[in-house]
């Protein structure tokens, strides 16, 4: 059996779990079951769920925030200030949510089964100019932040602007935006830190949720042995992803900041709780309201997620 896997961009920390999964599956079936990974050749990143739905490929990665209406149930994990503190927690939380019946049904509309997350750290800001010392300093700050994070930034007076990731570096160098919200690996690969002067260590405004899914029919059609191998390799692939992200990306992140003399800005508890109060609750209320209207058990999903976080913190 050969499966086609649709990713995008190029091989990076963000795709290491899929690469590892492919290795493990091939090893454990003596090459009888292989995953053929393509970076952008099979689909655009925003059309990956469509491709899964029609059966053009069997496995794909996407981000929930690319198209909230395609996958409203998992956007709960993109709400600002949920309070997730580690990649591992993000990973466990995602895996738990992916089993929730409402989430399973949501993705079943695309003939898709959620396999594993691609946990990303919080989208802290990298910026140029004077570093913000207090929340008041965000007033009037132009920032590249989309979706929920952008909405959260707006509550403290920042001015969110949308642009594609490839235009971000130039927009920042030229002053169109003064700050950019990304995960560390993206700050490094899109070059936002090259001319930056500050980074917020603990603003933790939220993150994006980017699952790997498989075509449900293809999963059923696998032989029992192959399916067992595939599903059994998920934990190991995720472990590899987490240690790769910690050891490669985060290990490079600190020195990269220091090398460039980027000031690391931390906010006090009082500041953060004020921010949370201003941004988190309205966002959650709005999310619950909108998704109840979509016919989702939104309150239940929100309570499920916040309950799990409270439990583990």
């Amino acid at each position: 059996t050969e499966w086609s896997v649709s990713l995008w961009g190029q091989r990076r920390a963000f795709t290491e779990h899929v690469e590892r999964l492919a290795e493990l599956v091939s090893e454990r079936t003596n090459g009888e079951f292989t995953l053929n990974i393509s970076y952008g050749g099979l689909s655009s990143n925003r059309e990956n769920l469509d491709g899964i739905s029609i059966g053009a490929f069997e496995m794909a990665q996407f981000c929930a925030g690319y198209h909230a209406d395609k996958n409203p149930s998992i956007t709960v994990l993109e709400l600002p200030f949920l309070g997730v503190t580690s990649l591992e927690q993000e990973s466990d939380l995602s895996m738990a949510l992916y089993q929730h019946p409402a989430v399973v049904a949501d993705l079943a509309r695309w003939n898709a089964t959620l396999l594993m997350p691609s946990p990303l750290p919080q989208y802290n800001l990298v910026g140029v100019g004077d570093a913000p010392a207090t929340l008041a300093d965000f007033d009037g700050l132009t920032v590249r932040a989309t979706g929920g994070i952008g909405a959260a930034m707006e509550t403290v007076g920042a001015v969110p602007t949308s642009m594609s990731a490839t235009e971000v570096r130039q927009a920042m160098d030229s002053g169109v935006v003064r700050a950019v919200s990304f995960a560390p690996h993206a700050h490094m690969s899109f070059g936002t830190i090259e001319n930056a002067t500050w980074w917020t260590t603990n603003l933790n405004p939220g993150t994006v949720n980017c699952p790997v899914v498989v075509n449900s029919d293809a999963l059923v059609d696998l032989s029992d042995e192959h399916r067992e191998v595939l599903l059994g390799a998920v934990d190991e692939a995720l472990d590899h992803y987490l240690s790769f992200y910690e050891e490669q990306t985060m290990a490079a992140w600190g020195p990269a900041l220091e090398e460039r003399g980027i000031a690391q800005v931390s906010f006090g508890d009082a500041e953060l709780s004020a921010f949370r109060a201003a941004a988190a609750d309205p966002a959650a209320t709005a999310w619950i309201q909108q998704n109840t209207a979509r016919g989702l058990p939104a309150q239940e999903l929100y309570d499920f997620v916040t309950g799990l976080i409270a439990e583990s913190n």
Binding site: S43, S44, R46, E47, G51, A56, M163, S164, T166
Partner: peptide
């Protein structure tokens, strides 16, 4: 189905 996505997906681009 694969080809039918392209006219919209590839053209709806800022660049």
């Amino acid at each position: 189905g694969t080809a039918g996505q392209v006219p919209h997906a590839k053209v709806a681009s800022q660049a």
